[in-house]
Design a protein around this nucleic acid. Structure first.
Lengths: 249, 249
DNA sequence: TTGAGAAGTGAACAAGTGTTTACCAAGATG
DNA sequence: CATCTTGGTAAACACTTGTTCACTTCTCAA
């Protein structure tokens, strides 16, 4: 809570009584969190964020995002239902804001992984480990992605699909730079990138709840994801071009 | 409607007036569908099926299964809400029945595809084409699978996951019989089967709505699925065993 | 033929929902 | 200082939801 410190030093210069009061107020601010002594814009954005977080939490232990009601969200935040409309016109709008936010944490995860040269087979292990750790750290965000990519509100679904396509395009460009895959054609890159991204997306639920879909004798979800990516990349390495093959059919 | 014929021949022997009436009644039965002249068990099962179909339809152009209300379903079928409880104790129970039904049409699709020797690379094209046609023919069923595999009711989700695991186990056994893949270990089969099944599952929405997530310049969803499976199987063919590789990390 | 049982009815119940309206207190601005 | 702006309040609105209960029919079997 550096804001309280800032307010404290700002207003406490001069009269010692004011200083004392400001100190107490700052403590109170620290205690109450966000309710007191905030400039309006800050406070508004904080309520907005609280709404987003509440929706995420309610969705996590519920029936999915479209089953979360406007009133539930406001109740969790501690404001009256009508106040919701000061921030979003709709629950769909909140959902879209959520997609935007979640997609940025996903991007951060990718940025972390990119340091480990995806092209090299040996790096898959480290990359998957990093990614899996990030997923459990932000499990609500990735749970939202996994659940709402198909089911639920059409607007949210399309937004997630668009985000997914962005990732595929990025990865496509990335794969095209790899010398190991220089024998592939442009369409091959697209299909390969799509396969990798969708494989990662389908593994999200298992990475989040390792226990839910457990066969006790099988490898951990992260290990399985590693192997899957290896299968795919080995296939890409030995890919001889689809033209010759489809002509043969 | 062979039932009407059956009833006609059963009751119309003797008096010609009765025969004439029975004929009209049989015609009426054919016209009204299921409302008239049905023995109880048959009629009950028909209402039950109507409830299942209604739920499927409402979910298809809506927010997913968990957003379909009990009252909506009964309204669509044309019965009163209370009558729902004569067939299912719950909407969740209806969902589970739906999973069972849908999973059997999925099994039928697999049965059709199995005739085309999945092991051989050349057969992928034909197999995918058959599967894709089956998917559009039963689009509501596969839409249900695609949407509810993650989001929505926990019971339905777990049922679909269990079904998916059955498919994976089956395919695992199938792959183990292929001479082309005899160099793989038992864990490899599991991972490979999981990768194939999940790849097919993720492609379902695109196979159903080929327009929705369209990049105009890219290949058709069915073609993409073909190529993805080729990537995977080529990777499996050149797989040298994970032990050596993971030890190297 | 009569009586049990079950599918479907109709009305009522308490909750919960999204949205609107007038209002208030307090930060921002002149 | 006064004034506008704005995040939040309180109450009401018209609905929809799941569930219950006593009821009517009508089948099926004894």
């Amino acid at each position: 809570m550096q804001l309280s410190q800032q307010l404290f030093t700002k207003y406490s210069t001069g009269c010692p009584k004011v200083a004392a009061f400001c100190y107490i107020a700052a403590q109170l601010h620290d205690y109450l969190g966000y309710m007191t002594l905030l400039i309006r814009a800050e406070k508004k954005q904080q309520t907005r964020q609280a709404l987003l977080d509440a929706a995420l939490t309610l969705m996590a232990d519920g029936q999915g995002f479209s089953a979360v009601s406007l009133r539930e969200v406001t109740r969790q935040v501690g404001i009256v239902p009508a106040a919701f409309y000061r921030h979003f016109p709709d629950m769909d709008a909140l959902g879209l804001a959520l997609v935007e936010q979640v997609s940025s944490t996903f991007r951060e995860a990718i940025r972390l992984v990119r340091r480990n040269e995806l092209e090299q087979y040996g790096a898959i292990h480290a990359s998957v480990r990093i990614f899996a750790e990030y997923v459990v750290a932000y499990r609500q965000h990735f749970l939202f992605l996994a659940r709402e990519q198909y089911g639920g509100s059409a607007a949210v679904r399309q937004a997630i699909n668009a985000m997914q396509r962005d990732f595929i395009t990025d990865l496509e460009a990335d794969l095209a730079l790899s010398p190991r895959l220089s024998h592939l054609g442009p369409e091959d890159y697209e299909v390969l990138a799509s396969l990798v991204v969708k494989t990662v997306f389908t593994t999200l639920p298992e990475l989040i709840n390792p226990h839910e879909s457990d066969q006790p004798d099988s490898r951990s979800p992260a290990h399985q994801l590693e192997d899957k990516l290896r299968f795919i990349l080995i296939g890409a390495k030995h890919w001889r071009g689809i033209k010759a093959r489809t002509d043969g059919d």
